[in-house]
Amino acid sequence: MADVVETAEIPAITPTKLLNDQQRVALLRWMLHARIFDEVTIRLYRQGKMFGSVFAQIGHEAISVGSAAVLQPEDAIFPMHRDLGAHFVRGVPLRTIALNHLARQGSMMRGTDGTGHYADPQRKLYGNISHLGAMIPVAVGYALAAQLKGEPIVVLNYIGEGGAQTGEFHEGLNFAAVRKAPFVLIIENNQYAYSTPTTEEYACKKLSDRAIGYGIPGETIDGTDVERVYEATFYAVERARNGEGPSLIEAICMRMRGHAEHDNASYVPRELLEYWKKRDPLLRYQRFLVENGILSEAEIQQMRHEIEAETVRVLDEVLQLPFPPAEEAFKNVFL
């Protein structure tokens, strides 16, 4: 975000008519789950108790939660590594997430891989690989198959502004546009690809401007306003479901931590983080919910305590579990 504007106040949420209060509480709960999972795993990482990397998604919660919440159970979702919120929205149990992150015995990936790279075909959730951009053509192919089978589903896929600079981004989105695939791509523009600022990543003003080059709608939105994300995704999903083809949404946010926890992100200017702290997606939404009488401060604190206690308990339990037995290494290279 090049234009840093001094704003003393926390910007207001732009409420959507598409949500009722019950759904709003659910959005907050999922966002809290994602935030707290990060907080707890960061703590474990610092204590030397974590296994693998911690790619915190703090600052991204409104995007993954606000967009995933639009989908129907039969729709498919291809999240990337900062979309933990989407896993909670899809109903993946905390324990399943923890088992996969920590590569423990009983994980769906049998210890072959970690973080959010797993797939849960029952919940139509397919994780990313580390080569960001690679899953865009795959998600498009999933959507094409649905089109071929005449199934009215939509495929929602995410990428960072970093991954948006890959060739696979172009090939995938162009192919989706040509075939009018039921596909929605959200670019989570979090200002940094590892240490590289947006000014060294691309030269256009808005990444959504690329949409016109593919002949599809594109829009840039505030990615820290969960209701704005919900609304933009809702119309893109509706359009895709009606057979009108893909859409591109660029959601602006800030990666509030390093690339992963080994990285102190000293290259990020302090004032930029100060600016974005006021736009914390959780603080913004909590304030909205309190001001509109949907939840009280006390209820939010209660919710937070419950989720934190559950997260700590589950992670502690999973950390006690053994890694999978060595013979798993030799299985499933071929089916």
């Binding site: 690679a134 192919g141 999933y142 959507a143 094409l144 198959a145 696979e168 090939e171 162009n174 192919f175």
Partner: peptide, 22 residues
């Protein structure tokens, strides 16, 4: 299906279609 000159989209698209039962 005729595709653009996009081998990554062809192969990636095939993988995705396979994950969706084709």
């Amino acid at each position: 299906i005729n595709t653009p000159i996009s081998e990554a989209a062809i192969i990636g698209g095939a993988i995705g279609a396979a994950l969706n039962g084709l």
